[in-house]
Amino acid sequence: MTSEMQIDNYLTALRIHLGPLTIAEREEIIREISAHIRDSAEEPGVSVESVLARLGPAQRLAAQYRDGLLIRRASRSISPLLLLRATLRLATKSVSWIFVLFCSVFGYLSGAGFVVIALAKTIAPAHDGVWVQDGQLVSAGAFIYGVPPMAHEVLGMWIIPLGLTAGSLTLLLTTYLIRSSLRISQRVQARL
């Protein structure tokens, strides 16, 4: 394989793995890395192979750009999908992010749960609520099959505003937790 072909193969692989970036961003990176390879290989006694080896596999180089972009986008976003993707990516790199991931999943699930319970009241009022028997909480939530027989329901329609408020607060808090963790990690992040 000639050096030109090696360079072309490397840049093609890099372009493929830089997929999620915009075309302009991608082409600028390709142009810069291409200039780096050509400049380095011009130095006496340096082969294209050794230049490419020092750059590392195209896939790994692209991953570093993609991670940077993902974290930057997520730290400005409120999309749970984007925030969870960034958290998941960072959790593969550090233990503290596994903890953040755990809290985020828990936060999103319980937030969504509160909202579902609130909405369920409008669809099947008899199956949704908080049941108390002899002053003790028996069960709470939305039930597909039967409700606790001896207990009586205490919240009534109040479960709708309460559920929606608790749900949105939990979701907001979770979003805030992930975003501030991402901001902090951007400050300390030379690790990626």
């Binding site: 990176i29 810069e32 890395i33 780096h36 380095s40 230049v51 020092r54 750059l55 590392g56 790994r60 180089l61 570093q64 750009y65 991670d67 940077g68 972009l69 930057r72 951007q186 030379a190 990626l192």
Partner: peptide
């Protein structure tokens, strides 16, 4: 430096 690490860092510093 592993040369591959510096370019993504420059890219990030520019974005910031």
């Amino acid at each position: 430096l592993a040369e591959g690490t510096i370019y993504p860092i420059l890219n990030r510093l520019k974005a910031e």
